[in-house]
Design a protein around this nucleic acid. Sequence first.
DNA 1: TCGAATATATAAC
DNA 2: GTTATATATTCGA
Length: 190
Amino acid sequence: MNKLNLALHHVKENWFGVITDPQNQLVASAFGPNKVLLEKYLAEYVRGNSRQQTSRDGHPFAECMAELFYDRKPSSSVKFNTEHVSPFQGRVTKILRFIPKRKVTTYGLIARKIGSGPRAVGNAVASNPWPLFVPCHRVVSSTLSIGNYSMCGTLDERGSLIKRQLLEREEVPIKGDKISPTGIWDPFGE
DNA sequence: TCGAATATATAAC
DNA sequence: GTTATATATTCGA
């Protein structure tokens, strides 16, 4: 029981990987150019959960993930397995899912919305188990610089570049190396 | 349990 | 621009 499935999909320079549970819920996703690192990262994420019972069938979510990467499809109808996320991460995730396309928000605004601190929100966003499906790339610092984006657990300039490309494809207004103020979405709404 | 480490914010220089 | 400090949550010894 509790048998998980790992599915991979390759498009151009990137590998897209998803782990799903028997109810077809998304347990975790990750992507990057290094297939070995990707598999290692996902296996580590579910360590202790499935043991060696992970199967490797294809899954439509893997293709869906690549579509999301190229901004070709909405992420609706994907159910998430929240087994590994803390209550706090859950509250942050709920906000992330509301950030509209063409917009971003900040760690600080999310923090104020849920009565927490920006640094804690940064931790939660950084450990988002469902990148692309849950648009954690739509969160930037209060200075409006693009900021950081880790892929398969590694945090470097490359991730930041990918984050920028994702935002550009979604037509978030960017001037120079900063988000334009018109691109900010306020979680307090109106 | 506690100390250290964060994908931060803000104020002051 | 660069600090210093406050801050919430997580993780490991």
